[in-house]
Design a binder for these strands. Structure first.
Length: 465
DNA sequence: GGCCCTTTGAAGCTA
DNA sequence: TAGCTTCAAAGGGCC
């Protein structure tokens, strides 16, 4: 795996685990200077619970651990907030690791400078033209990856829900205790912890602010306008029938993982460069580019993702990914069947290549994903025939599009990673992969010169499937 | 309107 | 513990 595996890395799939991050427990010793206080955290949780669940606190009630954490904030926050923020130079302006990254605007990393005292963004924050006009979230705010348009729907002002201020007024126990969670005067901003700094972003306050005043984007209604209306109503003090209230419980979304953060950042770039629109095709490209990233580059995103998870944990101690299970319907049965018959399934590929399953495979292969070699153009697994005797099809061919991307993005990493020693498991896109005329004809990029190849191979990029 | 596609990673579940 | 499933984002396509 290219990611972060250093030689003997075992779990190459979870490369973030391979980072030399300290154990959470070890991180308790240091508290970021700006760490918000125990009280803030407790209030924050309280407000979340109050707003989403009504006056009661079912989440906490159902989760003694949550209560304990709230009551033991020292443990909570110290436990959650890693000192590697300091280690990585993130506690203050980081001249290195995040410099030049779109994530220079990452709330966690911004600490003192990301949001200037007057609320404006750090100049560094505009480096990457990620544009998400339809979502009132600042595009450079990775800690705001969650869909937030739910909070700005309907006739409300796209900037601030009409009743926001009222709600703040009517929530004395929260507003008074969480001075930093609401539109703050410049002085207040400085009191907010780095991790909470995004709360004060003008855009956040404008459109994605949670009506609780805790605008964490992970909190969204289940879906749609109607639910949002319910959600708004839910914020009002009037008691509602239990069943109804339950149905209106907002959804707390999963924190984004490293790749998701990367996608969020790079999507617009890929779209702009290759005039692609379909997310499926874009994601294929991004997936390949992800593998082409250097260890250090990926480390940024793993770090961000880790902080994202930590913040998420702090905000929603009782939340579990399981809470959202069943909220999406998938054709899992069909996929499962495909996986079983897939000649590139991890198990089969491992066996065919006769490689050590602990060290010789990339993360995807060690899970359910296809063998990376299969995908990367070796064409097929070692055997041309699958276990059931049927012929193995040629691998999916987004490669031509990816090849084009490699031209569009003159990064030598795609063709020749800077550090090849750490990507033995995920070789970059084969340079020999031809760019089809179709692939390039749909792209304005002059660097994309077609090579003779099957025209149909571009279908992935040009049409999506 | 809502699911599908497509990617990787994290977390939960199951045997 | 290994393997599988689900969800996270995105937005065009499709039914």
């Amino acid at each position: 795996m290219p990611q972060l595996g250093s030689g003997g890395g075992d779990d190459l799939g979870a490369t973030d685990e391979m980072l030399a991050f300290k154990d959470e427990g070890e991180q308790e010793e240091k508290i970021p200077e700006n760490a918000f206080t125990e009280r803030d955290l407790a209030d924050l949780k309280s407000s979340l619970v109050n707003e989403s669940e009504g006056s009661g606190s079912p989440a906490a009630a159902a989760d003694p651990e949550a209560i304990r954490r709230v009551q033991d904030p020292q443990r909570v926050y110290q436990e959650k907030l890693p000192d590697h923020m300091e280690d990585a130079g993130m506690k203050h302006q980081d001249p290195g690791m995040y410099k030049g990254s779109a994530y220079s605007g990452y709330p966690f990393l911004m600490l003192s400078d990301p949001y200037l005292p007057n609320g404006s963004m750090s100049p560094l924050s505009n480096k990457v033209p990620v544009v998400q006009p339809s979502h009132g979230v600042h595009p450079l705010t990775p800690l705001i990856p969650y869909s937030n348009d739910h909070f700005s729907h309907g006739s409300h002002s796209p900037h601030l829900p009409a009743d926001i201020s009222q709600k703040q007024v009517h929530r004395p126990s929260q507003t008074s205790d969480i001075p930093g969670f609401y539109p703050l005067p410049p002085a207040g901003v400085g009191q907010i912890t780095p991790s909470m700094g995004w709360f004060t972003h003008p855009l956040m306050l404008g459109s994605s602010m949670h009506t609780t005043g805790i605008p964490h984007p992970a909190i969204v209604p289940h879906s749609g306008k109607q639910e949002m209306e319910h959600y708004d109503r839910n914020m009002k003090p009037q008691p509602e029938p239990k069943r109804e209230k339950e149905a209106k419980k907002p959804t707390i979304k999963k924190p984004l993982n490293a790749f998701m953060l990367y996608m969020k950042e790079m999507r617009a770039k890929v779209i702009a460069e290759c005039t692609l629109k379909e997310s499926a095709a874009i994601n294929q490209i991004l997936g390949r580019r992800w593998h082409a990233l250097s260890r250090e580059e990926q480390a940024k995103y793993y770090e961000l993702a880790r902080k994202e998870r930590q913040l998420h944990m702090q905000l929603y101690p009782g939340w579990s990914a399981r809470d959202n299970y069943g909220k999406k319907k998938r054709r899992t049965r069909e996929k499962q069947q495909d996986s079983n018959s897939d000649p590139a399934s991890p198990k089969k590929c491992r066996a065919r290549f006769g490689l050590n399953q602990q060290t010789d495979w990339c993360g995807p292969c060690r899970r359910k994903k296809k063998c990376i070699r299969y995908l990367q153009g070796e064409g097929r697994c070692a055997s041309p025939v699958s276990s059931d005797g049927s012929a193995i099809d040629s691998p999916p061919s987004p490669l031509d599009a990816l090849q084009c991307i490699s031209s569009a993005f003159p990064s030598d990493k795609l063709a020749a990673p800077a550090d090849s020693t750490h990507r033995e498991h995920t070789d970059p896109l084969p340079v020999s992969a031809p760019i089809t005329a179709a692939a390039c004809s749909s792209r304005p990029n002059p660097g994309c010169s077609p090579a003779p190849a099957e025209p149909s191979a571009c279908s992935v990029a040009s049409t999506g499937t």
